[in-house]
Design a binder for these strands. Structure first.
Length: 370
DNA sequence: TCGCCGATAAACAATA
DNA sequence: ATATTGTTTATCGGCG
């Protein structure tokens, strides 16, 4: 079978109309569905950063640039709640600044290419290190209604990742492909009477929110929790009612807390009892369920799966030295902060090494294959 | 070498 | 009729 396992039966069953997961009804109101960025985002003009697509072999380098630029700024903040993060991409409130380290509203194209010798690489033209799944996740979670039509997902991505404005149009296909295929995303009907626009709204399945957020986190994206809407949170006017996502079999949430999830509390992580159901990385992130006899110590397995996910989600940049979970629990916030800092250090170190090693290794590999 | 995974392309149907 | 949306299949390349 191909790499993609048909999941249509699963999804179709839940699609519109069925009493399944999202289909139970319509979203309260995707009022901002047609303008997902209208809330906290500064509208910017159409991604002006045109430019030719970077060569494929540049991707890894550009990814590292990304990480460099983001990490360098993010990790000076001292933790998720230390102060509003004005670093790249997102602040603590979920508002977004440019992924390139400057405000989106400022059309500054004088990109900082701290990681690229010579500075010839424009991050605006660089392919984001996030997988489409994460991009979609971020887009959806950033919307007030926590749901977006495809078109607005396009828009969000275009606005915050100008790379795609000049990328071949196939990326839209990929977005749709991801939405359809990835179990992290669910289709919901638009509200009755509000059927302006085509297609359905898409939302993130609550079961996978922690997973996706964790994936972001494991990408060393310390403000990932800004995208996390705790499944246990009370329904708000701006988010799909939780009843749209009745807990399915195999889904359990340990603990029941309100407000932001403490990332350092691994015991709060959702575990899936049926990893096989998921053909995406999502299951790999929650793979250490209680069902499967642990072949590895729980923390080891988690680190492995997290690293795996990070690798998958970040493209090819493997974070090899993830902070160990062996450390005794201390103040969760301090621990998280320390983890992130440590990871940043490791990553930066690796970035410096891997940019050269990776490139040479690949070249030799290609030569060998020929 | 192999399997997994994400990205990409393409075909096709349904719908606004 | 056209464009958009959604689904599905196939293929490729990178990685462990």
């Amino acid at each position: 079978m191909g790499p993609i396992i048909g999941m249509s039966p699963d999804k179709k069953a839940e699609s519109p109309g069925s009493q399944g997961v999202c289909g139970a009804g319509t979203l309260p109101e995707a009022e901002s569905a047609s303008s997902p960025m209208a809330t906290s985002l500064d509208r910017i003009g159409p991604a002006g950063a045109g430019g030719s697509r970077t060569e494929p072999e540049d991707d890894e380098l550009t990814n590292l640039n990304w990480l460099h630029e983001n990490l360098l700024q993010n990790f000076t903040l001292g933790g998720p709640e230390a102060q509003p993060c004005r670093g790249p991409l997102f602040d603590i409130e979920g508002s977004i600044s440019s992924p390139h380290g400057h405000s989106l509203s400022s059309s500054s194209t004088s990109s900082v290419s701290s990681g690229s010798p010579g500075g010839e690489r424009d991050p605006l033209k660089s392919k984001p290190p996030f997988s489409f799944s994460l991009l979609i996740y971020m887009a959806i979670e950033q919307s007030p209604s926590k749901s977006l039509p495809v078109k607005d997902i396009y828009g969000w991505i275009l606005e915050h990742f100008p790379y795609f404005s000049s990328a071949p149009t196939g990326w839209k296909n990929s977005v749709r492909h991801n939405l359809s295929l990835n179990k992290c995303f669910r289709k919901v009907e638009r509200s009755l009477g509000k059927t302006n626009g085509k297609g359905s709204l898409w939302c993130v399945h609550p079961e996978f929110r922690p997973t996706l957020m964790q994936a972001l986190k494991k990408l060393h994206f310390p403000n990932a929790h800004a995208f996390y809407t705790p499944p246990a949170s009370p329904p708000s006017a701006s988010s799909p009612p939780r009843h749209l996502f009745p807990l399915e079999q195999g889904y359990s949430m340990k603990g029941d807390q309100e407000g932001p999830i403490d990332l350092s509390r691994r015991d709060l992580v959702v575990v899936s009892r049926d990893p096989k159901q998921d053909h995406t990385y999502s299951s790999s992130l929650v793979s250490h369920s209680q069902q499967q006899p642990p072949r590895l110590a729980a923390h080891e397995e988690q680190d492995r799966s997290a690293a795996h996910a990070a690798a998958a989600l970040s493209g090819h940049t493997v974070i090899r030295s993830l902070p160990s979970a062996k450390r005794a629990r201390r103040d969760p916030r301090a621990e998280l902060d320390e983890e992130l800092k440590e990871a940043a250090g490791s990553l930066l170190h690796l970035a410096g090494i891997r940019t050269s090693l990776g490139a040479s290794r690949r070249k030799s590999r290609k030569l060998n294959s020929k």
